[in-house]
Nucleic acid binder design. Sequence first.
DNA 1: GCCAACGTTGGC
DNA 2: GCCAACGTTGGC
Length: 159
Amino acid sequence: MQFWLMKSEPDVFSLDDLEKAPGQRSMWDGVRNYQARNYMRDQMKTGDRAFFYYSNHDPAGIWGVVEIIGPAYPDPTQFDPTSKYFDPKSREDNPRWMLIDVRFLYRFPQPVTRDAMKNNPQLDGMLVMRPGNRLSITPVEPKHWYVIHKMAGFTPERK
DNA sequence: GCCAACGTTGGC
DNA sequence: GCCAACGTTGGC
């Protein structure tokens, strides 16, 4: 099992939205970056877990955890001319953009803000904290995963 | 709202 | 295949 961090603007899609979705499950659509796509297509597996990170939000930070439901399949919004994620260059017989589903797992007792993450030396080197990083999906090292859970006042269940 | 970082596009 | 222009991301 691997750990990830997935960014979302909560005005667009929040952890609340996911929790209220049918089956507490949703497509992670709209990713239009090749490296993030490759993570979803090639590396993310059912049972992997990901931090749900709020970007463009005050405060930015991590609100909870979701489960990855794989395998990846074509993102339908790329073929929808009314979608803001429409990609006229993508063809149905050779889709450019893939996605995975995510399922709500749990909310942190208290969110871990970006500010708090920045001030914790145990998180030095975490990819999402690197200046200028814009990648919306990044792998998370297990040690960082556990440090952030501790900061959230949350002790993960065994396993 | 500003703007630095950085990915993508397209002219050549 | 270079690289300037452009658009987007996202912290601040």
